[in-house]
Amino acid sequence: MIEVSHLTKVYGDHTAVYDLSFKIEKGQIYGFLGPNGAGKSTTMNIMTGCLSATQGSVKIGGHDIFRDAMKAKQLIGYLPELPPLYLDSTPQEYLQFVAEAKGVAKKDIPEQIEYVMEKTKIKHMRNRLIKHLSKGYRQRVGIAQALIGHPEVIILDEPTVGLDPMQIIEIRELIRELGKDHTVILSSHILSEVQAVCEVVLIISKGKLVACDTPENLEKQFAGFVTVMLEAETSAAKAQEILQGVKGITETTVLQDEDGRCRLKLGSRYIVPDMFTSAIFKAFSKAGCTLLSMTPERASLETIFIELTQDAQENRDVSEEEIQKARQQSTGAESEAVAE
């Protein structure tokens, strides 16, 4: 559906996006995740034709966004970071304008407006001036605007920023629902949001793509070895004795040892938590010793995120030469575009 290849954007001497390539398949919800200033908005702006690229190409449904812009843009609905609303008009007038500008057939316009208003639940606000609407409602009008014309792809740049918790939940519900009929791409710097809504996560840091997978796979991939927190009704020395019968323990740390109770942290060579915990359980039950609790710990998406984005920061320093090269190529592309 969308193919981004070797996208680079240089502002003056600052590289916002560097050699970004990814593919977006039909009918899923994608999440762009990255810290502030990672290049999420820049990438989205380029994908929607609002910004040119220094280098690289974007194809929407086979149409190049720079060369075949009109056809490519017809396939996209875009909500920028700040909803682009005319404050002095009403949602009804605004959506009418967007529908006409998107070239929706005249007879379909009223029906389309009803449909998007229904979806975004703004029907009762249709005749108020947009400047009198709350932030949550403005965001909805912005999303409604993106939905007009039934575009195959809907791109939302930080759709839940600045909303209250209730509104955030509602907007997330809406996005999930949109994911049924459209390909949705949203950006966020909030992990839980992406985890809650998206089927595929693209982690971007400092203008580079550092990971792209489902949230579950990312967790699996980066989970590494299992550690277990363990609490038993015995002394630490006795527990360690019992654990000697368990294979694969690499590290044992005693956290607490008093009144016949102990808490231990165990490192292992296991990757699947269940196998490790079951082995521990069997060893303790054989020794007739009570296990009070046992918690396997895995890397959460959060730790993966922090790890990945920090890595990228260290590896980042794009050399001056590379920037120069990209710029020279860009001037070529620019004059080509002007010539067209």
């Binding site: 034709g49 609002c50 009109m70 843009k73 920028p80 682009p84 609303l85 070239g103």
Partner: peptide, 14 residues
């Protein structure tokens, strides 16, 4: 100023 130019850029109009 109102950033509505982003809308104009993303619409399929030259």
């Amino acid at each position: 100023r109102q950033k509505t130019d982003q809308l104009l850029y993303s619409l399929p109009i030259s």
